[in-house]
């Protein structure tokens, strides 16, 4: 990694639910680990999330959802990322996501899914390791 390069992360909340406690704790933990964290706020459309990722040139996107609409929304996000050429962005997800949906999400390009109770340390480690691998 270049010395001057900071890891830029977008924490995004698609869907209508308002459970942002987890998203904010992850945002804060990543910031405290030295990253630059952009948070979209609640209730973002896939288009808004992808445009934000593009303009902010982020390395990582964390999607948080607890409303159960992930299968309706994540494929659209991944498709838009592909269309806009953001294929090198690392995408992970968290929230209430059933085990049986994970293979489907991985197939569309979501690299990791963190369930309830995941320590923030683990997410930090995951991001750092994956960013190191790239350079």
């Amino acid at each position: 990694m270049q010395s001057g390069k900071k890891i830029r992360v977008l924490i995004a909340k698609p869907g209508l639910d308002s459970h942002d406690r987890g998203a904010k704790i992850v945002a804060r933990a990543l910031r405290d680990a030295g990253m630059e964290v952009i948070y979209t706020g609640l209730r973002q459309t896939p288009e808004q999330i992808v445009e934000t990722a593009l303009q902010e040139d982020v390395d990582v996107i964390g999607l948080s959802i607890l409303s159960g609409a992930h299968l309706a929304l994540f494929p659209r996000i991944m498709e838009l990322l592909r269309q806009k050429g953001l294929t090198d962005v690392l995408v992970f997800a968290g929230g209430i996501i059933p085990e049986e949906d994970i293979p489907e999400l991985k197939k569309i390009g979501i690299k990791e899914v963190f369930g309830p109770g995941t320590p923030t340390e683990m997410i930090i480690k995951y991001v750092l390791e994956n960013m190191q691998k790239r350079t």
Partner: peptide, 9 residues
């Protein structure tokens, strides 16, 4: 904005 959320929760 309601896509995927109607009648879910």
């Amino acid at each position: 904005m309601a896509r995927g959320e109607v009648g879910v929760c």
